[in-house]
Simulated scan of single mutants.
Amino acid sequence: MTTMAQDPTSTAARARGRASEIRRHELAAFLRHRREHVTPEQVGLPRGPRRRTPGLRREEVAQLAAVGVTWYTWLEQARDIKVSVQVLDALARTLLLDPSERTHLFQLAGAVDPAPASVSPSVTPALRGVLEQLEPYPACVQNSRYDILAYNRTYGLLLCDLDAVPPEDRNLMLLSFTHEEWRASIVHLEEATRLMAAKFRAAMAGHLAEPAWKALLTRLRAESADFRAAWDRHEVVGSRGKRKEFRNAHVGRVTVDHTDLWLGPQTGPRLVTYVPADDESRRRLRRLRGIAAERAGAGI
């Protein structure tokens, strides 16, 4: 008796299809649950005497989100339909999703949030307190994609005025390859950016299918010739501490030792610290901390 070998391509396609189906059903269940837990009064609608539906009706969600009732019904029925980021954004606002729920919604839909939350669940008040207590040492919290989730005042003025950068652009890769003031502050720019591209390639190996990572890679390739050249080298390197030199616009040149302190698994957030490597850098960082405090007090 002979048996035919299974086509690995078709097997992989069936697995992807099954994963997509599971995600659609999870999305449908999540939408129903959230709809049933939002009261009409919360979104400015009258309850009415004959209401039996817990929470909002489907047609009410569709009306508030400016989508068709049939289309929204299909979404709650886990139909295989395309959902734009604009519609997901409207649904998140209509259903009063908090930052964690909004992130979950976009992940289930396999979409990139066009307006990521400015507050990360991993950045607790206690962790912000740690950042403040590390002053005058520059420190920040980053995730594995190099998004800067939080930072102290000294870090905020170390390479540029980080407060002036839109939250969605506070990403170490974007800043290192596309922000001119940030790039001008790095003493050994070519070496630093080549290392950053190698670290990003190594980190991305575990996130190849994630839309947010793919979107960042696409943007970097589109906006930076330096990134394209570094990326095409196919170099990889793991995360490690390193001595760095910066030209600060306020206090001059500083030399620091960079250390990553992981707050969970190595794919999660990390506390990044810059400890002065010599007495002059220590004095200059103290001055920078004072400048940052003065600017904050003056509301700059």
Rank of each mutant, 00 (worst) to 15 (best):
T178S: 11
W213L: 14
A203K: 01
A184N: 04
R243W: 14
D279M: 12
D169R: 11
K214G: 10
L174P: 05
F246C: 03
G241D: 09
R194S: 14
P211G: 11
E245W: 06
H207E: 15
E191K: 12
A164G: 02
E191T: 15
L261W: 06
C160D: 11
R233A: 15
L172P: 02
T273V: 14
T267F: 04
V275C: 00
T154W: 05
R219K: 10
M196H: 12
D279Q: 13
S281F: 01
A215R: 05
R233F: 10
V165W: 01
A203C: 07
E180A: 15
F227R: 07
R243G: 10
V272E: 06
D161P: 04
V237Y: 08
R253Q: 03
D257G: 08
A192G: 02
V237N: 05
L172V: 07
D163M: 10
H258S: 07
V272I: 14
E210Y: 05
P265T: 15
W262F: 14
E181I: 13
V256K: 01
N171G: 11
V237W: 03
A225Q: 08
K242T: 11
H179K: 04
Y151D: 06
D169S: 14
I186M: 08
S224Y: 00
R201L: 04
V254R: 02
V237F: 05
N152A: 07
H234C: 12
